[in-house]
Design a protein around this nucleic acid. Structure first.
Length: 282
DNA sequence: CGGTGTAGTCAG
DNA sequence: CTGACTACACCG
């Protein structure tokens, strides 16, 4: 029996060796042909790739990318359903504080905002997280906060956030992407980007805020709208389509593709499908 | 003493 | 709902 099995064992071992040799040759080939720049790069970056923290931060009910130079988020993503909007969570129990997943060197602190003249403005709103105190507490981390004109924050912007929540009564799923922008202005012959910084840590004050809203329900094309709102006192606009912009304009300003996995040829303008009108002032 | 938590006031 | 601000009790 053992005598008869030996050729099989020999064949098996040989096959294994051949496979190993092929794999090694393939790996060497790949290294030589595809990775010369990366290989040299690894030598150049002997002491490491410059590091600014996690690319994406995952919280209980929102996801964000952080701008460690400006001490604000780059974008904050949410998925709102009506079930998230009811519950016992109360902002009285939440506290503004640094996000532990952000390096202390790169975070904003409460003292930066205090007496700065700018309010601490949520990107993912606290009111979208009534269902969970944990999720609401996460929205008070400074990774979700930008310096926001207080009149705009409690006025127009608040109404815009309420509109997004109200969408869940007409759409099953609402996806929102919110963040700050630093838009140039014309100064004589040239365009310049100019924005204040506040506090010891020089937290950047955005010139504008943006919001991308995607609303979905079965048997209706996906509805999408992008809005850019100046970070200053603005009046009450019942119809906020005046702040709507082509999504490509927002992408050019922000520097990233907003929804790379969404086929835009199949989407409809949110403001044509829904009203894009805020509720009455009182 | 400086932090923390709570409560209340005020305003948009 | 969105905030700022103040006062006070508590604790190590």
């Amino acid at each position: 029996m053992a005598e008869q099995q030996r050729p099989f064992a020999r064949g098996f071992v040989c096959g294994l060796l051949v496979a190993l040799a092929v794999a090694c040759a393939y790996l060497l080939f790949m290294q030589e042909e595809v990775d010369p720049l990366v290989k040299r790069g690894a030598e150049i970056l002997k002491y490491g790739v410059p590091e600014r923290g996690p690319a994406v931060h995952y919280l209980h009910n929102h996801v964000l990318a952080y701008d460690s130079a400006k001490r604000t988020p780059l974008w904050v993503a949410e998925h709102i359903k009506s079930k998230h909007l009811q519950g016992p969570a109360d902002r009285k129990h939440s506290k503004f504080k640094p996000d532990p997943s952000v390096d202390p060197m790169f975070t904003a602190y409460d003292r930066d905002y205090r007496r700065s003249g700018w309010s601490r403005g949520h990107m993912a709103p606290a009111g979208d997280n009534k269902f969970s105190q944990e999720a609401m507490d996460d929205t008070f981390l400074f990774s979700n906060i930008v310096p926001h004109d207080i009149d705009n924050n409690s006025g127009f912007w608040n109404r815009l956030e309420m509109y997004c929540r109200d969408l869940t009564s007409r759409f099953e799923d609402v996806y929102v992407l919110t963040g700050p922008l630093y838009l140039p202005t014309q100064e004589g012959q040239q365009k310049v980007v100019k924005y204040p910084v506040i506090g010891e840590n020089e937290v950047a004050v955005p010139t504008h805020l943006y919001k991308v809203v995607i609303a979905e329900r079965t048997d209706t094309p996906i509805s999408m709208g992008a809005f850019i709102v100046p970070n200053q006192q603005i009046g009450y606009y019942q119809n906020f389509t005046i702040f709507q912009v082509p999504i490509e304009d927002l992408e050019k300003s922000s520097g990233f593709k907003v929804c790379p996995h969404l086929d835009r040829s199949k989407t409809k303008n949110l403001c044509e499908v829904d009203s894009c009108k805020l509720r009455n002032r009182k």
